[in-house]
Computed example of a mutant assay.
Amino acid sequence: MIDGTEKTNPDGRGRRRQGELEMQVLSVLGSAPCPVAAGWVQKRLGGDLAYTTVMTILTRLYAKKAVSRTRAGRSFEWTPVADGAGLVAMRMRKLLDNQKDRDAVLSSFVSSLSSDDEQLLRSLLNEADDPER
């Protein structure tokens, strides 16, 4: 959405934001009672999402170490390793790891936080320093 209008696909549906489908797949996997096949995920996502699209997303999540898979006959069964927040955290870490000036990136990030987020971050860092808390 650049000019106030949402971009749409040729079929008139709104375009998904980057990572939205990955989050949906992780959410579905998180509700699974045990490791599940891609078809199980596809069915629960609803709509007309192609099986190959689900497989592509699962494979990308596997490459990001957000899901694990085990062989089940000729296919795989999938299990979440990270939830949506974990996936975003992995992305943030990967971006940070690819920067030469980590200090500048972290400084810029912290200075752009709202006061509530800064307080939350301070609290989380204090908890990490004192594991007996």
Rank of each mutant, 00 (worst) to 15 (best):
L125G: 03
P131A: 04
K65F: 02
M23P: 00
S68E: 05
D129R: 13
S111Q: 14
L29C: 06
N9R: 12
Q119W: 01
Q18S: 13
A82N: 10
I2G: 05
E132T: 11
Q42R: 15
L29T: 07
A66E: 03
G46S: 04
G46D: 04
L87F: 07
R13V: 02
L120H: 09
A85I: 09
S68K: 11
M90L: 13
A63M: 09
K43M: 10
D103G: 04
L121R: 07
Y51L: 07
L49T: 13
G46W: 08
E6R: 14
R17A: 14
L124R: 10
L124W: 08
A128P: 01
G84F: 01
L26Q: 03
S107G: 15
A104K: 15
V25G: 02
M1V: 11
E118Q: 13
G86N: 05
A32D: 02
D129M: 10
S108R: 15
S123K: 15
A63Q: 14
E6K: 14
L120W: 08
L21K: 02
D11F: 02
R44F: 03
D117F: 03
K64R: 14
A104N: 11
C34L: 10
A89H: 06
L113H: 05
P33V: 04
T53C: 04
G86D: 04
A85Y: 11
D117P: 05
M55E: 08
A72S: 14
M90H: 11
M23Y: 03
N126F: 11
L95I: 08
V81M: 10
V110F: 05
E22I: 00
A89E: 06
E20Q: 13
D103Q: 13
T79F: 00
T79V: 05
P131N: 05
G14Y: 10
K94Q: 13
L49S: 02
T8M: 10
S107T: 14
S107L: 08
D130R: 10
V28I: 13
L106Q: 06
L87R: 03
F76V: 05
V28Y: 00
L125M: 11
R44Q: 10
A38T: 05
L21A: 05
V25S: 04
P10R: 06
L45C: 00
R74S: 12
S123I: 06
L45T: 00
A72L: 09
T5K: 14
V41L: 02
E132A: 11
R102M: 07
D117Y: 04
P33Y: 03
A50S: 10
G4W: 06
L45R: 02
G12T: 04
L45N: 00
C34K: 15
P33M: 04
R133C: 08
R69D: 01
P131K: 07
D103S: 09
E118I: 03
Q99Y: 04
A89F: 07
M92D: 05
T53E: 10
A128L: 15
V88Q: 10
A82Q: 14
G30I: 02
N9K: 10
I57V: 15
D129I: 07
T59Q: 12
L45G: 00
A72G: 07
T70E: 14
A38L: 06
V36S: 00
P33N: 05
G39D: 09
L45M: 11
P33C: 03
K7L: 13
L121W: 01
